[in-house]
């Protein structure tokens, strides 16, 4: 399980995260919602230390670290227990789809090439790209690139996969294929924290929805609780703005 305790973070003098506490059970899918600037992406990036939190504690599985006193080795261990799917995909541009998935298996996990290859091929098949093994990212559509990104994250067999607005950069007609892949791996019981604006997806897949605003967790609960019976005024306002249909749907 994942445990975030009192995570805080400021950029210059602006406090982006204020003592965030969040627990995610193994196999749970947590969706973080919130207006832009609410700190949700920063929180996600703190979990694998792409942003350095000013203070707090992060625990992933049996590994626990104090953010203020993290050493290089700690950061590496944390990153090897987590994986990230980026908004801009960030596939390694000079490597093929297959090489992108294999890279960390070879370099980080030190698997023999044959085994790394086998595992990568089956993961790419799983995301529906068995026929694109040797394509470079520049020759893949956004949706295909993001599916490679997901396969790359899965390859690490992390304790948790962090999704940072995985469909925000995609053309509308490509969103579906990526969400479908995420939905499928969610069903396999892989722990996920997802930052997204896709309300339908959140309602459908999330075990728990967390609403953030102004660097704090305003409200959390099951999708039903948060979407149908939000308690906080800020949550209600946000939901009205982002999903007008929510008022009419049921």
């Amino acid at each position: 399980m994942i445990e975030l305790k009192n995570i805080s973070k400021s950029f210059w003098r602006h406090e982006v995260l204020r003592n965030i506490n969040l627990n995610v059970e193994t196999g749970e899918v947590v969706v973080i919602l919130g207006p832009s600037g609410s700190g949700k992406t920063t929180l996600l990036r703190c979990v694998n230390y792409l942003e350095k939190p000013a203070g707090g504690e992060i625990a992933v599985g049996d590994f626990r670290m104090d953010c203020a006193r993290a050493k290089r080795g700690d950061v590496l261990r944390l990153r090897r227990k987590t994986a990230m799917v980026f908004q801009q995909y960030n596939l390694f541009r000079h490597k093929t789809a297959l090489e992108n998935v294999m890279e960390a298996l070879l370099v980080v996990k030190k698997l023999p090439p044959k085994e790394a290859r086998g595992r990568s091929v089956s993961l790419l098949e799983k995301v529906g790209l068995g026929d694109k093994l040797d394509a470079y990212p520049s020759r893949l559509s956004g949706g295909q690139q993001q599916r490679v990104g997901i396969a790359r994250a899965l390859a690490l067999e992390p304790e948790v996969i962090l999704f940072d607005e995985p469909t925000s950069a995609l053309d509308p007609e490509l969103v579906g294929e990526v969400l479908e892949v995420i939905r499928n791996i969610a069903r396999e019981g892989i722990t996920m924290i997802v930052v997204t604006h896709e309300m339908g997806f959140a309602r459908d897949v999330a075990n728990r929805v967390v609403f953030m605003d102004g660097g704090v967790v305003v409200e959390e609960g099951t999708p039903d609780e948060v979407f149908q019976r939000p308690r906080e005024e800020r949550t209600k306002q946000f939901l009205r703005r982002i999903t007008p249909e929510a008022n009419y749907s049921i």
């Binding site: 694998n48 792409l50 990230m84 390694f92 960390a104 980080v108």
Partner: peptide
């Protein structure tokens, strides 16, 4: 970032 996220 992607390289770091993969644990490199």
């Amino acid at each position: 970032e992607a390289a770091y996220a993969a644990g490199m």
